Amino acid sequence: MKEQFNTALSNLVDKLIGWFNAIIESIPNLILAILVMVAAYFTAKYVSRLVIRLIDKRVEQESIKGAISRVSAVIVVALGLFMALGVLNLGKALTSLLAGAGVVGLAIGLALQGTLANTFAGLILSFRKKIQIGHWVETTGYSGEVMDINLKDFTLKEADNNIVIIPNKTILDNPLKNYSLTTKMRVFIECGVGYESDLEKVEQLTKEVIANTFDQVETAENVEFYYTEFGDSSINYLCRFWIDAENMLEKLRAKTKAIIEIKKAYDKEGINIPFPIRTLQFDSKLDVNTSDIKETFAKN
């Protein structure tokens, strides 16, 4: 029993001595690994600031800038960690770490498909020059000013001051109309005049009113005017012209102003803008006998 105890104690001492010697031998590598991690930490901070400078003019959203800079910093630190493990001769641990990271990444990716899709879509939208904060856009049935683009959603403020939050993935998967990419917008006005009106006079008067109301319309010839149909109570027309505008609010204000001025001119010239009228005509010459009606109902 005593010999077994002495043997076990000797093995334990040998094992401890071996570990101590291994630690002593590994001190230079350990110091080097620590230096690598410290260098990676400071390099990550520098890279983070550098990335922010590089994307500052391309991306306006602070949330996107911060996310990209943090991702770049994490990549640098991860590279430093892999180098440090290599210096410590922990190749197997490094392989196991990479394998574990791959499995965990796959599981997280499957669990967060929607979130990751919106995140990557947000990054893509942030670098698109044709979609910027302040632009007036229309998409998926909503129209308004772009207020924010972050890693999760796309925020619009409609003309009635309502806030609409749309997932980034939806924006990429659907058509988007951007009114702010052009400096001109076309205004459409549909109206009708009475059948007794002088149609040539109506056309000339409408064009002159538009040309005199808007500085962007140089002459009456720049105004398009087309009669479209013989309506139930009026002859209808379509008038359209270009204005300098970058959002729907300016277009609506211009259309309102045009309608007011056209109505004033029509009233001054005595041009009628009729509303639907139904005329009931009671001139039947049938001889209706009350007794016959009563007899008919009695038979039925």
Rank of each mutant, 00 (worst) to 15 (best):
T119G: 10
N21F: 08
V146C: 05
E62P: 07
P28Y: 04
T213A: 03
Q204I: 07
T139W: 01
T95Y: 14
D287K: 14
V209W: 01
I260F: 13
Y227F: 15
L123E: 00
S143I: 04
Y179G: 10
P28V: 02
L9Y: 09
V209S: 01
I235N: 09
A73E: 07
F225W: 08
G66N: 07
V202M: 07
G105M: 01
I17P: 03
E224T: 06
I163F: 11
F275R: 15
Y226M: 05
Y142Q: 08
F230G: 07
M185Q: 10
I189K: 03
K184C: 11
Y142K: 09
E60D: 15
E261N: 14
N6C: 02
S197Q: 10
K152S: 09
V164M: 02
K15R: 14
E203M: 12
V59G: 00
S284H: 00
L238A: 05
R186K: 09
A67R: 03
K207I: 03
L172I: 15
L205M: 15
F5M: 12
G114I: 09
S291A: 15
V217T: 09
G80C: 10
E25Q: 13
G100E: 07
R253Y: 00
N29M: 08
A258P: 05
A101G: 08
T115A: 12
L181Y: 02
K294A: 13
I68T: 00
I277Q: 15
G134D: 06
L249E: 08
N272M: 12
T296V: 11
R128T: 05
I262H: 02
K294C: 03
V47W: 04
D244L: 03
K129V: 02
D215K: 14
D215Q: 14
L16R: 06
T139M: 11
T290I: 10
V76L: 05
V103F: 14
V71C: 07
G91P: 06
F230Y: 08
N162D: 13
S10Y: 09
V103D: 04
A159R: 11
K257V: 10
E196W: 04
T228E: 10
